[in-house]
């Protein structure tokens, strides 16, 4: 079943076509990868998908429903939740408080519960905090519950961001370069985590530069260059596609430090 379908998505900044009539669709339970050289427009696709940018053309269809131009919060509440390439946590707050932010819209509290607590709101509050605890245990973060996230190492911050996304009980998790800035050990943990999330029933869409990670975890890949799709298919197909090899190696062997050679 197609969970997410992107059709003819186009985003233009000034005169620059960042995304050019891009189409792809993600099936339920997939780990779907989008790869491409720097500046290929991958993050722009995510920004259009999550409502941060408004695309000039094209549609985003979520479970058969057109959600193009929905605001980010509405999209998140429909079950699409993302992380950011440059981690965006509430850095003055602790790990538990950060994860709790994902529970905010799931909470059944009304505005007046902010002024007067009732037995109902207290139960609701406790239920959500316990859910946070559960997620912290899942993500191995319980030891840092009261640590302010700005004091955590980078790898932990990534995990907190993913934990926060999980707390919203999403269907599709959109990861924007989750391995960026991680060391080898942390990347390995991340790989295992992504598999674990898939096994829990989440669908995952990810942008990644780390070819090892992409080729290991994804089921299906779309390769983007200059905003256009140049190839799609399983990792094996993509790896052997001449257009992909040219895009990565032919013109500029910029930033992957020979990672793809190993594959």
């Amino acid at each position: 079943m197609e969970l997410l379908k992107i059709e003819n998505l186009t985003k233009i900044f000034g005169g620059l076509v960042a995304v050019d009539h891009l189409s792809f669709s993600v099936k339920k339970g997939q780990i779907y990868g989008i790869i491409g050289p720097n500046g290929a427009g991958k993050t722009t696709v995510f920004n259009c998908l999550t409502g941060i940018y408004k695309p000039e053309e094209g549609t985003v269809i979520w479970k058969g429903k057109d959600i193009t131009n929905y605001p980010p919060d509405k999209i998140a509440n429909l079950g699409i939740v993302r992380t950011f390439q440059t981690i965006r946590l509430f850095s003055d707050m602790c790990v538990a408080e950060n994860i709790m932010s994902g529970r905010n819209q799931i909470s059944k509290q009304h505005w007046y519960h902010g002024l007067i607590h009732t037995p109902f709101s207290k139960r609701d509050e406790k239920k959500n905090w316990l859910k946070v605890k559960e997620i912290m245990e899942l993500m191995n973060l319980q030891d840092y519950a009261t640590e302010l996230t700005k004091n955590l190492p980078y790898g932990h911050q990534r995990r907190v961001e993913i934990a926060r996304a999980l707390a919203t009980e999403p269907e599709l998790i959109v990861l924007d370069e989750p391995a960026a800035g991680l060391n080898g050990h942390e990347t390995l943990d991340l790989t295992n985590l992504i598999f674990k999330l898939r096994d829990m029933g989440f669908t995952i869409l990810l942008i990644e530069h780390d070819m090892n990670l992409v080729m290991n975890v994804t089921d299906y890949i779309t390769v983007v260059n200059f905003g256009e799709k140049i190839c799609e298919g399983t990792p094996e197909i993509v790896q052997n596609d001449p257009a992909v090899i040219e895009a990565y190696l032919g013109k500029e062997d910029a930033d992957d430090e020979g990672d793809e050679d190993e594959n």
Partner: peptide, 27 residues
């Protein structure tokens, strides 16, 4: 009461990072 409620936390989230707050579904 506000400090220990979903509403009060939402205020902090949107102050600290409006976009991140929106992206976890906070209006």
């Amino acid at each position: 009461n506000l400090e220990t409620s979903a509403v009060g936390r939402a205020f902090h989230y949107l102050r600290l990072d409006n976009l991140a707050a929106q992206c976890v579904g906070i209006n």
